[in-house]
């Protein structure tokens, strides 16, 4: 309160009375400013803390000569040699296959919701997209396990992981594409119809290209999100210390799975590899994140 009184005294006597605010109102206003700023700072602390930890502990591993070009095949648990290219391959190929399946379905569903969907089916679909967005990754993994491995008898493989990842990617792709399609002004659709262009061609050749960069941004964010998923790889594929190029059979490493396996390794080399893999994963995810935000600047949607 002392400060409030001081500043009152400091003011010129001639100041119009309309400028003064009661001390308690001003205190509440200032207190709220301090609190919300503090909340923001508290939120940023863990991000910086996590990133600094990962970079500091992971840096020694990723600058080693063998890190990016070797696997862990034949490397003893206590040895610091070897690398993780087998796991990088696994992470990328699983995400790639998931993307190839999820993107056409996701864009199709978004087109349905924006351009065609009316009535109860559309409302149900929209509701279920929200539900799917909330399905935990372990449940998605269990579902793929129950349906494909347990009942249909498919072997565990990277492809099974990709199928689970499709379920996790779909809602992100659908919601994002939907939002982009809704941003395309109706007058563009109308002028295409007025040229005698059928609706489906209008969507494919006018609406989708206009929403293109935004849609790709959403896909890249979805990829960034699924690459760190651990639950599906834990349930649906075995870990391998060597490279396996075949997504349809055999064990295959991925960065999260490698980290989880090395958790059981009590040697110092285990911790070295865990943090190295963590930093590698963050770098790959950041490439997609930054790529997505750069791309989102090149939007063709007119204001």
């Amino acid at each position: 309160m002392a400060t409030a009184t001081d500043s009152d005294l400091d003011r010129p006597a001639a100041e119009p009375s309309t400028r003064t605010i009661s001390a308690s109102r001003r205190f509440k206003d200032r207190a709220s400013t301090v609190l919300v700023t503090l909340a923001f700072l508290i939120a940023v602390v863990p991000l910086i803390w996590v990133l600094v930890t990962v970079v500091a502990r992971g840096a020694p591993a990723i600058v080693s000569a063998t890190w990016w070009g070797n696997s862990l095949s034949g490397i003893l648990p206590e040895s610091f040699g070897g690398g993780v290219y087998h796991a990088i391959y696994g992470t990328l190929i699983q995400a790639l296959i998931a993307t190839l399946i999820a993107v056409p379905i996701g864009i199709g569903a978004a087109i349905y919701l924006v351009e065609y969907g009316r009535g109860p089916l559309a409302r149900t679909t929209s509701f279920m997209v929200d539900i799917l967005a909330g399905v935990p990754s372990i449940v998605a993994a269990l579902f793929i396990f129950a349906a494909f491995i347990s009942i249909l008898g498919a072997p565990q493989s990277a492809f099974m992981v990709s199928l689970a990842l499709v379920l996790l990617m779909l809602p992100v792709v659908i919601r994002n594409t939907e939002e982009m399609l809704r941003l395309v002004p109706d007058r563009l659709r109308e002028s295409a119809y007025a040229l005698g262009i059928p609706k489906w061609k209008t969507i494919l050749r006018i609406v989708l290209p206009t929403a293109f960069s935004g849609t790709v941004t959403g896909v890249m964010l979805a990829i960034a999100r699924i690459m760190g998923e651990t639950a599906p790889v834990l349930v649906l594929v075995g870990y391998s210390r060597a490279i396996n190029y075949d997504p349809f059979g055999g064990n295959m490493a991925s960065l999260p799975l490698l980290m989880y396996s090395e958790l059981a390794n009590p040697e110092a080399a285990g911790s070295y590899r865990i943090w190295g893999a963590a930093l590698t994963l963050i770098i790959i995810i950041m490439i997609f994140q930054v790529g997505a935000s750069l791309l989102s600047r090149y939007s063709a949607i007119p204001k």
């Binding site: 002004p185 007058r187 563009l188 109308e190 002028s191 007025a194």
Partner: peptide, 9 residues
């Protein structure tokens, strides 16, 4: 139409 609306892409 009222608003000029060339296809932006």
């Amino acid at each position: 139409f009222q608003m000029p609306n060339p296809f932006p892409t």
